[in-house]
Nucleic acid binder design. Structure first.
Lengths: 211, 211
DNA sequence: GGGCTTATTGGACATTTGCGCAATAGCCTC
DNA sequence: GAGGCTATTGCGCAAATGTCCAATAAGCCC
């Protein structure tokens, strides 16, 4: 393997770890798999990471953080709160189309036993909730949404989304991806007093790309 | 170890497996741990269980199935659909006070890698959904609930509940148990066109027992 | 009590895992 | 081009894991 600067190599290791984690899940990610993905030796990973735990926490934080940033960036391009909410759903449902959701399942389960992982997982979930909460705040101010408790509503919208995704990822055909998309938006509509279809109809461009 | 009848021994193995699973998590449960918990040899476990996968699936199914039966029995004692729904929430939110929810997190994460576990997990989730769906059907027939698609509404109510519980169990103080109780019922109320507080107020007797 | 069935043992075996270490080789400086 | 720093290698090691199996012994029927 070509010699690289420590910073570059570290990034490459994290990227390779991420690829393996997304393919096999956190629990089934091994040093040797990462080395193979990287095309390097297993010893090299330990030259940069003190332990497997550090490697996993680092990679998960990077991946989940990137998804959050991407969604946040897309949301900020929305011209009004309703469009922002549509963009949010578009981005969120696309993000785990590529099975990134299995990562979250692993993280939630492992959080109880891995302090470092729990910390980053909790922080990111709170940021997701705040992202939604901000959209709702704007919607209420603009008079296009009706919500007495935006913070609670944001947790409900996020939890419904996660709960539905969970069924899709863990069980395959109990709940389909299409139903996750439809039902999570429906939940947000009734939560915020929106007309049925407000969140569904205007994102056909994106949904076509997924079909 | 004293010789036991196959049925009794099988039950003892499942009980021991469950104890280990609750203490260490599904992913960290090993044959040797179960044998130690049981006070028997590791070979004995394989005399009764074809594989580790079967053992875990069996133990999880037993624990989760018991919770389902208990909730279903309580629901059937409700005199009308509204009371049944209240009983459902009372039972469900109590069931994971004793950290049974962590088992579900483990199961959902492990489902991707353990076929037998996935099957029982999926089946049980579907039965939970059907339990809710039945209540809604009754409520719509009785004219006390308003719902265009009971099956979808049941999935949303269940997913919201699971998603909120998930935050509570995985992250501790992001979402509190009290908020899970309050918010999940609120979600069901707006989902089924019920007046706010319909599901909250009339279960004080049960809620007092938890405080 | 003898003999049969089978529950139970305890370790062997192959595999996989995280991790460490001496040897090697690439890049920079002089 | 020589020398030194260190990125990189590839193997080895100890521990853990699922699975299997021949040996043992406990209960039951005659």
């Amino acid at each position: 393997m070509a010699r690289m600067t420590p910073d570059d190599r570290r990034e490459a290791i994290i990227a390779a770890t991420l690829a393996v984690m997304q393919r096999q899940g956190i629990a089934a990610t091994t040093v040797r798999d990462v080395a193979a993905e990287l095309g390097a030796s297993s010893g090299l990973i330990h030259h940069y990471m003190a332990s497997m735990d550090e490697l996993i926490a680092e990679a998960f934080g990077r991946a989940a953080g990137a998804d959050l940033l991407a969604t946040r960036a897309l949301v900020e391009q929305g011209q009004d709160p309703l469009e922002q909410l549509r963009f949010f759903f578009d981005s969120y449902t696309r993000a785990d189309g590529d099975s990134g959701m299995q990562l979250w399942l692993d993280a939630w389960a492992e959080a109880a036993r891995r302090p470092e992982l729990r910390q980053i997982s909790q922080l990111l979930n709170q940021e997701w909730q705040q992202l939604i909460c901000g959209i709702i705040d704007g919607g209420v101010r603009a008079g296009v949404m009706n919500c007495a408790d935006p913070a609670a509503a944001a947790w409900r919208i996020l939890s419904l989304l996660d709960g539905l995704h969970l069924q899709e990822v863990a069980h395959g055909d109990s709940v389909t991806g299409h139903q996750v998309t439809k039902w999570s938006r429906h939940g947000a509509e009734i939560e915020l007093g929106l007309d049925p279809g407000t969140l569904t109809n205007s994102s056909q461009g994106n949904r076509l790309a997924r079909a």
